[in-house]
Nucleic acid binder design. Sequence first.
DNA 1: GATTATGTTGACTAACATACTCAGGTATCG
DNA 2: CGATACCTGAGTATGTTAGTCAACATAATC
Lengths: 136, 136
Amino acid sequence: MKVSSRGEYALRALIVLGLHAEEISTIAEISEQTLVPVAYLEQILLQLKLLGYLKSKRGKHGGYMLAKAPDQIVIGEVIRSLEGPLAPMGCVSITSYEACPLEGTCLLKPLWALIRDSIARLLDQTTLAHLIERKL
Amino acid sequence: MKVSSRGEYALRALIVLGLHAEEISTIAEISEQTLVPVAYLEQILLQLKLLGYLKSKRGKHGGYMLAKAPDQIVIGEVIRSLEGPLAPMGCVSITSYEACPLEGTCLLKPLWALIRDSIARLLDQTTLAHLIERKL
DNA sequence: GATTATGTTGACTAACATACTCAGGTATCG
DNA sequence: CGATACCTGAGTATGTTAGTCAACATAATC
Ligand code: FES
Ligand code: FES
């Protein structure tokens, strides 16, 4: 049930950018504050940009900024984009359902559904603004 | 946030054995009902035995049975044994804590803690008996 | 006691995912 | 122009997953 380092790193970066909203931050600056290697961070920031969470400026005095207000960035969506579905099994995933062979009689499915619901409820109720303001 | 096929398979096997309690089941029978390949199932059943959930009998008319009553088999414990901690990050794991470098100032930790708590509460409250009786 | 049905053990493998690195390329500013 | 930044695609080392396979050990039965 682990979250990958890539997901964690992406969220760290979003938090750093959210804390310095209105300012532009270079990859190097973000790397310092997140402890993520520069070359790896480049990849992740680029992906976050393609997903629409960030905007960038090239060249001198370039860098990254949030492309949305922090309260419009839903943590559940970010994690889904980076790591795939939140559900523990495909058969209980709402965003990307996948059938199980035993689904008709399976006694586990209701349990997985409870897990999915509680994870999704938490992560889809939480925005970057909530994290930054420490209001969960 | 996926659960591995190994964990799913183990739970399927426990359910089959729980449904036929008092009787002995061969690996082949369990394999049929769970759709898990025999050779792979062997590994998993053996592990469940070493963990104390199952007992076995060798030779002709041999097979596997539950070693505990279904209401003594806690799903959270089974999953932890097979897949490691339930927590999404080491820094919020109770059973196997591991420090994060940014732990002091990290704004994510409280969120991960909520996730961990809600998963652990669900899985540690559920026993094999609950699954079999469809009472969640 | 030989046969046969069963679990036991350990090694092995193919495929995939993770967590990166690196070598360039391209836009922007001064 | 040239420095500074982001952009892009490829490559790599390591580990995990989901199995397979061959040989062995034990228990019941004929
Ligand atoms: S886990 Fe999908 S049907 Fe049982
Ligand atoms: S995730 Fe462990 S301290 Fe932030």
